[in-house]
Design a protein around this nucleic acid. Structure first.
Lengths: 207, 207
DNA sequence: TAGATTGTTAATCGATTAACAATC
DNA sequence: TAGATTGTTAATCGATTAACAATC
């Protein structure tokens, strides 16, 4: 059955990119067909869970055969809205900003950094990846003019909330925040966090 | 009641570093006391959940008053085993490795990169943060000799599984993996993943 | 056909929350 | 005391899994 009207929970959405990543990997290896069992084995997820997750969005497999990798990839890309390229603003041109600007994996998977801001005059004018670093003072103006809806915050913790406020005010609806603080944003703005130390501390508990 | 014998679930462990981070932030602002309600407000987590999570490990608050921030911080650090410094090996001295090596936040919060490896001869011998980049060929030897139990993988996807295998064989028990693939490791080895694109794709679903 | 695998149901399991006695 | 907040219980809510008919 195609998408009954019950709300799909975010935890399900969170697994779709993992499935997509695994499918892309298999495809690159030349494989054409896979099964929920094989995918589950590789990802450490039960096959039932994978089938259940996918069933929220449609029927993508064939009984007895499994899933066509290319087709399922395309469907997941469509569902996740990464069958297009999202212009992404990057705030912060430090070491981390530099790494992100140079990372080709973003573009391959639906996101392209096309504007970079930093408040350090020494960085402004520098070329990083495809972009020239702009003054942070122009952030609101540029985000509004080009209609950026996705931003990556890679500035120190002390500046992150202020940067987020400017992004939100300018129309950004999705923020990937590398600063080690929880941001305060309106309910219609999505935030995801990356803080390596949280992950390390979670593991050191078990050591 | 202090730690009844039921297993504490990993999802609870995963929130403790977030609480610790918020407490450190409040402490830096000069605040001495907080409540589950205040913490929850700042983090977007219910106060009941915070109290429940903490109750797995002991009684850290006072009725009518709340929690002493310094005391609770210390207790969380002890529980998470970050009341010490974990020597951490970093594999990969590209842009990302460089950003990690320069990032002071790791050391402040319990993890210190004291060995860096790269298979590119041009990188070997370079100084990055406190370390000189070593040949990846020496990885197993160095990890064994100094007893590293924590490693950060910041190499391209194609090399990540092989690097993980070497780390595991040499005794590493906790891996933070930045490569966009799911690693295959023995059950007693913990892996955490950071892939910015997974987060971005999770948000673009809603745009 | 025989074997394999899907999509879905129902049962189980785990996580979250509301509520409140205890008490600072 | 009066007000506030903890730690804990019980109820609710959500997520996962086992099982299987359908069918390729």
């Amino acid at each position: 059955m195609v998408g009954n009207s019950l709300k799909i929970h975010d935890i399900v959405i969170g697994r779709l990119p993992i499935y997509l990543r695994a499918l892309t990997f298999l495809s690159a290896e030349g494989q054409e067909i896979t099964s929920s069992h094989e995918l589950g084995q590789k990802l450490g997820i039960s096959s039932a869970q994978i089938r259940k997750d996918l069933s929220h969005f449609g029927e993508f497999g064939k009984q007895g055969t499994g899933y066509n990798i290319e087709y399922l990839s395309q469907q997941l890309q469509r569902i996740l809205q990464v069958d297009r390229e999202w212009e992404t603003a990057l705030i912060g041109a430090g070491d981390l900003g530099r790494a992100l600007a140079h990372y080709g994996g973003l573009r391959e998977r639906g996101f392209r950094i096309t504007a970079i801001f930093d408040n350090n005059p020494a960085k402004q004018g520098q070329k990083l990846g495809d972009c020239v670093v702009k003054d942070s003072a122009r952030m609101a103006e540029v985000i509004k003019e080009y209609g950026y809806r996705v931003a990556i915050i890679a500035v120190p913790a002390a500046a992150a909330q202020q940067v987020a406020d400017i992004c939100v005010e300018a129309g950004v609806k999705a923020i990937l925040n590398y600063a080690p603080i929880t941001l305060s944003v309106p309910a219609d703005v999505h935030v995801q966090y990356i803080d390596p130390v949280l992950h390390l501390q979670r593991m050191s508990y078990y050591l």
